[in-house]
Design a protein around this nucleic acid. Structure first.
Length: 153
DNA sequence: GCCAACGTTGGC
DNA sequence: GCCAACGTTGGC
């Protein structure tokens, strides 16, 4: 079992959106970065847990936990001509992009980015690296457990 | 809205 | 395979 951090812009999908429908897995579509895709396709497994992180908004930081609820499957949005995430180079036979379903686990008290930076034990968090833009990053188990504890406080 | 950092594209 | 140009990301 692995641990992850998944970024989302809350005006797109927020932790509250997920919490509002806790029994409905949400398809995580629109990932168009090869590294993030490879994490989903090659390493994510059902039951993995991910810190849910709000970016591109006023209150940036970790806001909750979600569970990976499916194996990776071809992202359907790549096949829809005219759609924002359409990819003309993708075919049904050789899809380029993948999705997983995620399911709400818990919402906690916001852990702002400044608090992440202030904690020496979290120094290796990929999200804190200069210029880091990956929307899906692996997280060490110890880091995950620490942040899960903070979320519950 | 700015801008640094990064990823992708495409001409050569 | 290099690398300049371009587009995107994301914190501020």
């Amino acid at each position: 079992m692995r641990y992850w951090l998944m970024k989302s812009e809350p005006h797109d999908v927020s932790i509250d959106d997920l919490a509002a429908r806790p029994d409905h897995p949400v398809a995580w579509t629109g990932v168009r970065n090869y590294q993030a895709r490879n994490f989903m396709r090659d390493q994510m497994a059902i039951g993995d847990l991910a810190l849910f992180y709000h970016s591109g908004c006023k209150e940036i930081g970790v806001v909750g936990v979600v569970e990976i609820a499916s194996n990776a499957y071809p992202d359907p949005t790549q096949f829809i001509p005219g759609a924002y995430y359409f990819d003309p180079k993708a075919t049904q036979e050789t899809p380029r992009w993948f999705s997983v379903d995620i399911r709400f686990v818990s919402k906690g008290t916001l852990i702002p980015m400044a608090a992440l930076r202030a904690e020496p034990d979290l120094a290796e968090l990929r999200i804190l690296a200069k210029g880091s833009r990956l929307s899906i990053t692996p997280v060490e188990r110890a880091d995950f457990l620490l942040l899960q504890k903070w979320l519950a406080e």
